[in-house]
Nucleic acid binder design. Structure first.
Length: 241
RNA sequence: AUUCGUGCUCACGCG
C-alpha cells in the first residue's frame, strides 16, 4: 500500500502544499489517514501561509480520527492566531489542548500571555501567568520577558515589577534582560530614579548591567535632555559596568 | 522518519 505519511510529508517539507492537498483529498475517501507526526508538520507548514481554512479542515479531520497534533504544532498555531489578533481563538485552542491530553507547555503560555498583552487584555494575561505558575511551570527568561514587557507596554510597570522581582526574588535568578525591560518600563513612565535603583539592585544580585541597560538609560536621558546624567552614565559604562 | 518546524529586551541598520 501507499505510504501517504511519507509522500505527503516530503511534499510538505518541500512546501508543495498544492500537491499535498491533492494527495490528502484522494486519500481521505479511501479510508486512509495520517499519523500525528505528519499532521503536525502539515499544520505547522500551513501556518506559515496563514491558511486558516485548511488548518481548520485538518483539525476537524484529526478530531474525527482521534489524532492530536503535537505541542509544537499547537504552539505554532497559537502564535499565528495571536499575531493575527485572534486571541480568543488562541484561548480556545489552549483549552482544547488540555482537554485532549496535550498539556500546554511554557511556550504555549508565553505565546498566549504575550498575545493577551498585545490585545491590551492585561488582566487576562496576568491570570494566565498565575495559571501557568499554578501548573508548576517555572518561567524561564523568555516567559518572564513576555509578561514584563507586555505589562510595561501597557503602562503597568509596578505590576510587572511586583509579579517578578517582588514575588520571585530569591527563588528565581533573573537575567540581565528582565532587569533591562523593567528599567525601560520605568524610564517610559518617567521614573528614572526607580530605573536607576533597579540598576543598582541588579548589580547586588550578580547581574552586570550590559550594553542594552545603558542604551535604555542613555536613550531616555538624551530624549529628555538630562545630559548631566547621560554623561555620568557614559563614565560608569566606560569604567566597566 | 518527513530528521533543518514554536515564544523574548534597547539603540542602530535593513525592508
Amino acid at each position: 500500500s501507499i505510504d501517504y505519511n511519507r509522500i505527503i510529508g516530503v511534499l510538505i517539507s518541500q512546501s508543495r502544499f498544492d500537491l499535498a492537498e491533492r494527495y490528502y483529498d484522494t486519500m481521505k475517501p479511501k479510508g486512509f489517514s495520517l499519523n500525528s507526526f505528519t499532521y503536525s508538520r502539515y499544520i505547522s507548514g500551513l501556518c506559515k501561509f496563514k491558511d486558516f481554512a485548511n488548518i481548520q479542515k485538518l483539525l476537524e479531520d484529526m478530531d474525527r480520527l482521534g489524532v492530536v497534533p503535537d505541542t509544537w504544532a499547537c504552539n505554532i498555531y497559537l502564535y499565528l492566531l495571536c499575531s493575527e489578533n485572534l486571541v480568543d481563538m488562541a484561548l480556545e485552542v489552549l483549552q482544547l489542548m488540555a482537554e485532549k491530553g496535550r498539556e500546554p507547555d511554557m511556550v504555549s503560555y508565553t505565546i498566549v500571555i504575550s498575545g493577551l498583552c498585545k490585545a491590551r487584555r492585561l488582566d487576562a494575561a496576568v491570570r494566565m501567568w498565575q495559571i501557568m505558575l499554578g501548573k508548576g511551570i517555572v518561567p524561564d527568561d523568555r516567559a518572564c520577558r513576555a509578561l514584563v514587557l507586555g505589562l510595561c507596554d501597557g503602562g503597568k510597570v509596578d505590576l510587572a515589577y511586583e509579579l517578578t522581582l517582588g514575588v520571585m526574588k530569591g527563588r528565581v535568578k533573573f537575567s540581565t534582560s528582565i532587569y533591562n525591560v523593567l528599567i525601560g518600563g520605568f524610564c517610559c513612565a518617567g521614573r528614572i530614579d526607580k530605573a536607576q535603583a533597579i540598576k543598582t539592585f541588579m548589580r547586588r544580585n550578580g547581574c552586570k548591567p550590559d550594553l542594552v541597560t545603558y542604551n535604555v538609560l542613555l536613550n531616555y536621558c538624551c530624549n529628555e535632555l538630562i545630559l548631566e546624567e547621560a554623561e555620568k552614565l557614559m563614565e560608569k559604562m566606560e569604567r566597566g559596568g
